[in-house]
Design a protein around this nucleic acid. Sequence first.
DNA 1: ATGAAAGCGCTAACAT
DNA 2: ATGTTAGCGCTTTCAT
Lengths: 341, 341
Amino acid sequence: MSPTRNPDLPAVRTLSDLAKLAGVSAGTVSRALAGNSLVNDATRERIVALARAHGFRPNQMASSLRRQKTDVIGIVIPLGHDQRQQISDAFFMTLLGHLADALTERGYDLMLRRVLPDRDEDWLDRFIGSGMIDGVIVIGQSDQFARIEEAAASFRPMVVWGNHAQGQRHCVVGTDNKLGGKLAAERLIAGGARRIYFLGDVTAVEFAARFAGAVEAAAPHGVTVTPLTSHLSADRLETEVAANLDRPLGRGDAIFAASDMLAVAALARLRAQGVDVPSAVQVIGFDDLPIAAQTAPPLTTVRQDIRAGAFALVDRLMRRLAGEDAESIVLAPELIGRGTA
Amino acid sequence: MSPTRNPDLPAVRTLSDLAKLAGVSAGTVSRALAGNSLVNDATRERIVALARAHGFRPNQMASSLRRQKTDVIGIVIPLGHDQRQQISDAFFMTLLGHLADALTERGYDLMLRRVLPDRDEDWLDRFIGSGMIDGVIVIGQSDQFARIEEAAASFRPMVVWGNHAQGQRHCVVGTDNKLGGKLAAERLIAGGARRIYFLGDVTAVEFAARFAGAVEAAAPHGVTVTPLTSHLSADRLETEVAANLDRPLGRGDAIFAASDMLAVAALARLRAQGVDVPSAVQVIGFDDLPIAAQTAPPLTTVRQDIRAGAFALVDRLMRRLAGEDAESIVLAPELIGRGTA
DNA sequence: ATGAAAGCGCTAACAT
DNA sequence: ATGTTAGCGCTTTCAT
């Protein structure tokens, strides 16, 4: 099995198999392989060599059971208000990639689970109580804020990506969505917008906050912000955006898309309608995914620092695993001005 | 913990805790909770109710150890020839999403691991031998074909997403990349291309096959296919593509991008140079990601059926777990004609 | 520095 | 239909 494994040797499946071969006890093998404490150097080297030669690897299940520690972190993605949304969403996927990096670096494996809270109200406690994971990262609150709050009361090693609410108990890392919404609206208004259309599903808390921020920034200027409900699933996105943008849009109108993917779809739709961006209609996105720099014209958007977010999530989880306290953190969004607004 | 959990009750952490409370033996509790065999209906209901009330959940590590089965499938992504490439690649992320769907549906959890084969030559056997997983899906062969072949000799429940080679032993699911390359080249040539530039890193086997297919289709027409090495990482992509397309491209030139992401970057670069697509330079992509329909003009590309691929992977893995044989399958690519070629 | 022995929490014979 | 018992493979006291 191992690159240096000699297939003619007898199979060594357990610590005691190896112990017998080495002429020592299982305890000694365990210590030797753990690099641990005070095993005679010669003994250790002999055992390690033997283990390599036979491609032996200690069983992690047995080890986990005995140590009461799995070295696995659960990543759970609740598919609540919009079932097909998130896993296919480029933002969450990028976040997952960075989480994998950060956790791997610290010696943890990842256990990935997608759940449908509508069908299984016990989704979070089931995962936490499974004994398979030392801690859990929840990617997105979806519409499960209450359930997460409840679990946080009795389970400490949990951190959540999402929106921060006043006085909440669970540790959350996320962008200041309301501020992001403000930045977007201000940019559009500075560019001459009189009517802003918010493209996105406002029942998601993050999106609701972006919408609220835009409304707050627009009101003093007498600018209206109208929600246009569009979901994020790849298959429905195109037609939904098209339907929403079917009204005649013209000078003074602007689109604030809740995500870059939505903005890209809006751009395609406007182009099909022969509406010029940004001279007739401005468009602004959210996230700053790689694609934002590649559209025509390049997309003006509100940047979330996904990498920083992922590292903050892992940092806080590690602190909580170590019994320390770790507070929520709200990351500042940044307006990236390009060609669409 | 559970939604109906009464926090005043004493903590019930193990089967025997619950058994004591219920006045039965641990064995009976185990059977009752497993829904298994012949437990008295009344007894089972009492035990199940008790378990719910106390938020009790059997420890999966102990169960796995005893049953010698974890109900977890490992998903491993080797980051070989181009370390930052794949996890951030939209294609692999979409595949992962579908795998999660298919595996969850069959009652399996996913354990995700990114590995750097360059730093750890034992990456595959280490995972297989960990005892944490019942089977493994390898996403992308990277430059690890030989290592995978070797592991396949002694470990059956493994399937791989990638390219199929003559007489290989490991079970692979993937697109016919060579045929895809042919389709792309033929389309470009039919559109008047005389010189094709292949944009992508040819050291990746899948890309090499696409390139080879294009060469094979182009040769009879006296059309040349020139490789332009570009990697896939989001940060480098833009500058690399720009550097590669710095030469003056004009009528009769065409670009065959190894992935849609690369094609999108090429489109942006050509636009910046004032080169019209497709009248001056044709562009064709590979994958047919959602973004392909949204570019300007919409991207002509070679479609891989990711969903079908994911389900085929899981189907074959399940068959192998059941001890049956399961052969490799090569999926047919499909040319999606849109506006760039 | 090493061995012996107990036990992590569960399941599955084998009883009855 | 339920209880009893013996492990799954490992780690870690406690001895020596």
